[in-house]
Design a protein around this nucleic acid. Structure first.
Length: 257
DNA sequence: AATCCAGTCAACCGCAGTTCG
DNA sequence: ACGAACTGCGGTTGACTGGAT
């Protein structure tokens, strides 16, 4: 069999998506789903390759996507998760509901990376302000959505509206993420900032112990059931919190930030 | 007012992994 | 078991924006 190139370059449009293309894509996916990305553009009448459609849908048009600025908590969570997962953007994105790997990657490269660099003297600090205020803009209502897709269909699901009101929540990822690193070194002040819903931990820890008996964590090779409930080394500690965190996410179907 | 230039972000590319016949 | 088809991921690019000069 001959393998056709995923994107035939001839005759297919590239570059920014128009609102009309967005509308067509969303309408088609809402009606038929996206079981086959390759065939989708043809079926929908789009002059795009399937790959491009998929990317557009995942990074921009998906109804559960959370547009807008990253909250401080989200940025902290990204930093923590990046420390543990490295450049596994999709894994990080999976822990940040409504955020895409591409978005997280961009945020990381644009300013989070810099935040980790040794603080520069004021004289060396960047002169420019960020183009857009990324932080402290909690209710980031789906930001303008301008640019290439002004006027695009912007599906907003109830879940999205829920997940958007994030910064004041008590169960958040940064809390979990922070606790991964500083689990035993919270100051009372920090605890105030990163309050974690009690039920989160009780459920999570309960499940952790329970699951040590089934395949769930054992599949990982290193179980961390009751015997390892108190990680000793730093690495164990990280591992412990990462697994705990992920398990909790799965269990709660991704707690909202 | 014009130009420069750094920051931002949507989109593309190519590769690796997975699924399927 | 094998290879093609397809999907998903991470790295990179390039157009655009807006502050600085």
């Amino acid at each position: 069999m001959e393998r056709a190139p995923f994107c035939e370059k001839m005759g297919l449009k590239r570059g920014p998506w128009t609102p009309e293309e967005d509308r067509v894509l969303v309408a088609h996916i809402e009606r038929h789903g996206h079981s086959n990305w390759r065939a989708l553009p043809k079926q929908a009448g789009l002059l795009r390759c399937g790959k491009s459609c998929r990317l557009r849908w995942i990074n921009y048009l998906r109804p559960d996507i959370k547009r807008g600025n990253f909250s401080w908590e989200e940025e902290d969570a990204i930093i923590q998760l990046h420390q543990m997962l490295g450049n596994r953007w999709s894994a990080i994105a999976a822990r940040l509901p409504g955020r895409t790997d591409n978005e997280i990657k961009n945020v990381w490269h644009t300013h989070l990376k810099k935040r980790l660099e040794p603080t520069k003297p004021a004289s060396q600090a960047p002169k420019r302000k960020p183009k857009k205020q990324q932080q402290q803009q909690p209710e980031a209502v789906p930001t303008t959505l301008e640019g290439p897709t002004t006027g695009a269909v912007v599906p907003v699901s109830p879940e999205q509206s829920l997940s958007t009101s994030t910064t004041s929540t008590t169960t958040d990822y940064s809390a979990a993420a922070s606790s991964m690193e500083n689990a035993d070194s919270f100051t009372s002040e920090e605890e105030e900032d990163y309050q974690i819903d009690d039920s989160f931990w009780s459920e999570t820890l309960a499940m952790t112990v329970d699951s040590s008996n089934d395949s769930g964590m054992q599949a990982e090779g290193s179980t961390f059931g009751a015997s390892s409930a108190a990680p000793s080394t730093n690495e164990d500690d990280m591992d412990f919190w990462l697994k705990l965190f992920m398990q909790a996410s799965d269990m709660q179907n991704l707690p909202q930030i």
